[in-house]
């Protein structure tokens, strides 16, 4: 878990076949979050590298009641920290992973 206390990992192997990734996010260090959240529950979701933004997904997670508004920035940051390296890898090696 980065300094956000949240862990984001690939829920499925990234085969570069399309722009969507399956990601899984969960709370690894509850002390680092400000608001209420669901402990010991992983949230799996798809993230489209071309159309989605981490902020938008974080907002939807707050709206769905998974996290408190005060933690949406941390959720967005943990998603961004995971998807940015994948985006960069794909830009360097468009021929696929």
């Amino acid at each position: 878990a980065e300094d956000t206390g949240l862990r984001v990992e690939l829920a499925e192997e990234d085969d570069c076949s399309n722009s969507s990734l399956a990601l899984r996010l969960w709370v690894e260090d509850p002390k680092k979050l400000k608001g209420k959240h669901k402990d010991n529950e992983a949230i799996e979701f798809s993230f489209n590298l071309e159309t989605d933004t981490p902020e938008e997904v974080a907002y939807e997670m707050v709206k769905s009641g998974f996290f408190h508004e005060s933690d949406s920035k941390a959720v967005a940051k943990s998603i961004r920290d995971r998807v940015t390296p994948i985006k960069k890898t794909r830009e360097k090696k468009p021929a696929g992973c």
Binding site: A1, R7, W26, E28, D29, K38, N40, E41, A42, I43, E44, F45, S46, V57, E60, M61, K63, S64, F66
Partner: peptide
């Protein structure tokens, strides 16, 4: 499984399931 819950928000699907025990031990 009964432990998995699906939530939809703005057209996005979130699948909520217990964090695998092995991952919790890592933390």
């Amino acid at each position: 499984s009964s432990l998995t819950q699906v939530v939809h928000s703005a057209g996005r699907r979130f699948i909520v399931s217990p964090v695998p025990e092995s991952r919790l031990r890592e933390s």
